[in-house]
C-alpha cells in the first residue's frame, strides 16, 4: 500500500521505524514520554494532511476539530457519565461533524486559499471562546476526568509501554487509512480538485462534495487526536485543545515532512519534536524556543524543500521511471 519511490525514502522510513522500535529499549522513560507526545500530534498532522496535503485546502484551524473531539468526549464523560469508550467514539464523530460543517459552510461560499485558512482559524477561535464561556464545558477551569485507570475508562497512562504501543497502533491505522485513501477513487478526485478545480468539474467530479467529505474525514482524524489527548492527560481546557499551537503543529509537520504523502506527517512531526526537544535541552529549557525553531525550519522547508523531507528523500537513489513524490 505505501509505495516508496527511492532508496532515500526507504532509508528514511527504516530510520523512523528503527527509532520507534528503539524507544522500547531505551533506558530513560523520558524518551518514551516524549515520543508519546510526538505520536499524539502526528495524528493531527495526518488529519491536516488529508485536506491540506491531498486536497490543497490549507486549514489554519485544525484545533477546531481537535478541540471538538476532546470536548465532546470530556463533556459526555464528566457531565453525563457516559462510558469512556462511547464518549471516545462520540469524540471522533463530533470531529467529523465539525469538519464537515466548516467545510460545507466555507465551500458553499467558494472560499479558497488564505480565505479558507482564515475562516478555519476564526472557527477555532470562536470555539475556544465558547468553550471557555459555558458551564457545560467547564468554563475557564476546563474539564477533569475522574481518575479510574483501566480498560473500562480507557485510561492507561500508568503503563507507559502500553500507552506507547496503543498510540503506535493508532498512528499505523490512520496511516493505512491515508494510504488507502490516496490510492482510491476519492484520493484521485481530491488531488484533481487540488490541482485544477474547473478541470475536475468538467470530468464529472462533484467538487463540493469531495471537499466537504475530505473535511469530514480530516475532522474524524482530528477528533480522534483530541479524544486521545483527553485520555492521555485526563484534563482539558480551551486554551490547550482549541489553541492556535495545535493548528500550527497540525500543518507544520506535514509541510516539512512532505504534504500529500503517507509518511510525511509522521516524519515531519517526529523530526520537529526531536529538534525542538534537542534545542530545549541544549539551551536549558528556554520557554517557547521550540516554536522559534519550528518557524525557522518551516521557512527553510518552504524555500528549499517544496515537497518536504519525503520529496528530498525521493530524489536520493530513485527507483527509476516512476520517480516522483509518490509515497
Amino acid at each position: 500500500m505505501m509505495r516508496l519511490a527511492s532508496y532515500g525514502q526507504v532509508a528514511l522510513v527504516v530510520a523512523v521505524l528503527a527509532y520507534l522500535g528503539a524507544v522500547y529499549v531505551m533506558p530513560s522513560q523520558v524518551w518514551m514520554g516524549f515520543t508519546i507526545n510526538a505520536l499524539a500530534m502526528t495524528i493531527v498532522a495526518l488529519s491536516w494532511n488529508v485536506t491540506g496535503g491531498f486536497g490543497g485546502m490549507s486549514s489554519f484551524g485544525h484545533a477546531a476539530m481537535y478541540g471538538t473531539g476532546a470536548y465532546a468526549s470530556a463533556v459526555l464523560q464528566v457531565q453525563f457519565g457516559v462510558n469512556a469508550w462511547l464518549a471516545f467514539g462520540a469524540g471522533i464523530m463530533a470531529g467529523a461533524l465539525m469538519g464537515g460543517f466548516i467545510g460545507a459552510l466555507s465551500f458553499r461560499y467558494g472560499l479558497k486559499g488564505s480565505y479558507f485558512a482564515l475562516v478555519t482559524l476564526a472557527f477555532a477561535e470562536v470555539l475556544r471562546i465558547c468553550a471557555a464561556s459555558f458551564n457545560i464545558t467547564g468554563g475557564g477551569r476546563g474539564l477533569q476526568l475522574a481518575i479510574e485507570p483501566g480498560v473500562a475508562a480507557l485510561q492507561f497512562n500508568k503503563d507507559r509501554v502500553l500507552t506507547y504501543t496503543l498510540l503506535l497502533a493508532i498512528v499505523a491505522l490512520v496511516m493505512a487509512l491515508t494510504a488507502w485513501l490516496k490510492y482510491s477513487r476519492f484520493g484521485a478526485y481530491l488531488v484533481a480538485v487540488r490541482e485544477n478545480e474547473d478541470a475536475a468539474r468538467a470530468l464529472g467530479i462533484d467538487t463540493y462534495r469531495v471537499k466537504v467529505t475530505a473535511m469530514a474525514i480530516s475532522g474524524a482524524f482530528g477528533g480522534l487526536a483530541g479524544a486521545i489527548y483527553l485520555q492521555l492527560w485526563l484534563f482539558i481546557d480551551s486554551a490547550v485543545v482549541y489553541g492556535v499551537a495545535i493548528s500550527v503543529v497540525a500543518l507544520i509537520g506535514p509541510i516539512i515532512g512532505g504534504a500529500g504523502t503517507v509518511w510525511g506527517p509522521l516524519v515531519g512531526t517526529l523530526g520537529l519534536h526531536l529538534l525542538g526537544e534537542g534545542a530545549k535541552t541544549a539551551l536549558h529549557n528556554a520557554p517557547g524556543l521550540n516554536f522559534v525553531l519550528y518557524a525557522v525550519v518551516l521557512i527553510v522547508a518552504l524555500r528549499f524543500l517544496p515537497q518536504g523531507i519525503m520529496g528530498l528523500a525521493a530524489r536520493i537513489g530513485a527507483f527509476g521511471r516512476k520517480g516522483g513524490d509518490d509515497a
Binding site: Y183, S184, R185, A188, Y189, V191, A192, R194, E195, N196, D198, A199, A200, A202, L203, G204, I205, G260, K322, G324, D325
Partner: peptide, 29 residues
Amino acid sequence: RTFQIVQPFAGLTVQENIAVGAYLRHDNR
C-alpha cells in the same frame, strides 16, 4: 468539455490524469 487553456493535473502522471476521467465509470484504481 475540454479547455482552451489546457488544464492538466500537474502533480499527477499522464496515466493518472486520464484515470481521473475514467473513475467516473470505474470505482477502483
